[in-house]
C-alpha cells in the first residue's frame, strides 16, 4: 500500500513539474526587458525556486533522520536519513543546474565563487553526493551510520545560512521575491505558476522520500535474509 502511495505521489509530482515547465515557457508573463539581461532565461525561475524549496525539505528530512539515528538509534530514522540524502541530491542538482543555466545567460558566467548563497548551496549538494556515494561504498554498520549521521546533522547548519544569505549579503544572487514582508515583486500569474511548481515539487519530494525509505527497508530485509540463508547453508 505504502509503495503504491509513494509511486503515485512521485507520478503526480512529476506530472505537476512537467506542467509547471509548460506554463513557465508558454503562459507565464514575460519580465521587463530593462530588468534583466536575458528576460527569456528568467523563466527558469519557475523551476529553480521550487527545486530549491524541495531541496530544503529533503535536507530537513536528512537532519531529522540523522538526529533520530544518533539520539534514538531508530531504524526508521536511519531510513529517513538515507532518503533525505538521496532526495536532497536529486533536488540539489536540479537547483544548481538550473541556476547555472540562468547564470550563464544573465551574468555571462554559470558560477560566482564570491556569492555566499551559491557556495553554501553548492556545499549542501556536495554533502548529499558524499552521503549517497559514501553509503553505497561502505559496509553498513553502527560506526558508518554514526559518521554519516554526524555529517547530516552538522551539515544542516548550511540550510539557514543559505536561506538568509541574500538578505544579509547582497552579492550576485537575486534577493527573495516571496515572504519578504511586503507585497513582493511578482504579479498574480507569475505567483500562480510558482505556486503550482512549489506544490508539484513538494508532492514529488514526499513521494521520493517515501520510495527511498522503502528501498532502504527492502535492502535491509534482503541482507538479513541472505545472512540467514548463509547460516543455514
Amino acid at each position: 500500500m505504502k509503495q503504491k502511495v509513494g509511486e503515485g505521489l512521485l507520478f503526480i509530482g512529476f506530472t505537476g513539474i512537467a506542467s509547471t515547465l509548460l506554463l513557465a515557457l508558454l503562459w507565464a508573463p514575460s519580465v521587463s526587458i530593462d530588468a534583466f539581461e536575458s528576460p527569456a532565461a528568467q523563466r527558469i525561475f519557475y523551476w529553480h525556486v521550487p527545486a530549491a524549496w524541495a531541496a530544503f525539505i529533503a535536507f530537513g528530512a536528512l537532519f531529522i533522520g540523522s538526529a533520530g539515528w544518533l539520539f534514538k538509534r531508530s531504524e526508521v530514522m536511519w531510513r529517513l536519513h538515507t532518503a533525505g540524502a538521496e532526495a536532497g541530491l536529486a533536488t540539489g542538482l536540479m537547483t544548481v543546474w538550473s541556476g547555472c543555466v540562468w547564470g550563464a545567460a544573465e551574468w555571462g558566467t554559470p558560477w560566482d565563487w564570491t556569492d555566499v548563497r551559491l557556495n553554501t548551496f553548492g556545499l549542501l549538494t556536495l554533502l548529499a553526493i558524499y552521503l549517497v556515494l559514501g553509503r553505497a561504498s561502505q559496509p553498513d554498520g553502527v560506526e558508518t551510520r554514526d559518521t554519516f549521521a554526524a555529517f547530516g546533522l552538522y551539515g544542516f547548519v548550511l540550510v539557514p545560512i543559505t536561506y538568509v544569505a541574500t538578505r544579509i549579503w547582497s552579492i550576485r544572487h537575486p534577493g527573495p521575491v516571496v515572504g519578504t514582508g511586503d507585497d513582493g515583486s511578482i504579479n498574480g500569474d507569475m505567483g500562480l505558476v510558482l505556486l503550482v511548481g512549489a506544490i508539484s515539487f513538494t508532492v514529488f519530494i514526499i513521494g521520493h522520500i517515501m520510495n527511498s525509505m522503502r528501498v532502504t527497508l527492502l535492502e535491509q530485509r534482503l541482507e538479513q535474509l541472505q545472512a540467514n540463508m548463509d547460516k543455514v547453508i
Partner: peptide
C-alpha cells in the same frame, strides 16, 4: 531555443531519476 533545450534536458533527467528510484524498489521486491 537553448532554454527549451535546458528545460527538456532537466525534465528528461528527472524522469530518468524517478524511473530509477521506482525500478530499484520493484527489483528489490
Amino acid at each position: 531555443t537553448y532554454l527549451a533545450v535546458a528545460y527538456f534536458g532537466m525534465l528528461v533527467a528527472i524522469a530518468l531519476w524517478t524511473y530509477t528510484v521506482v525500478q530499484r524498489s520493484r527489483r528489490l521486491n
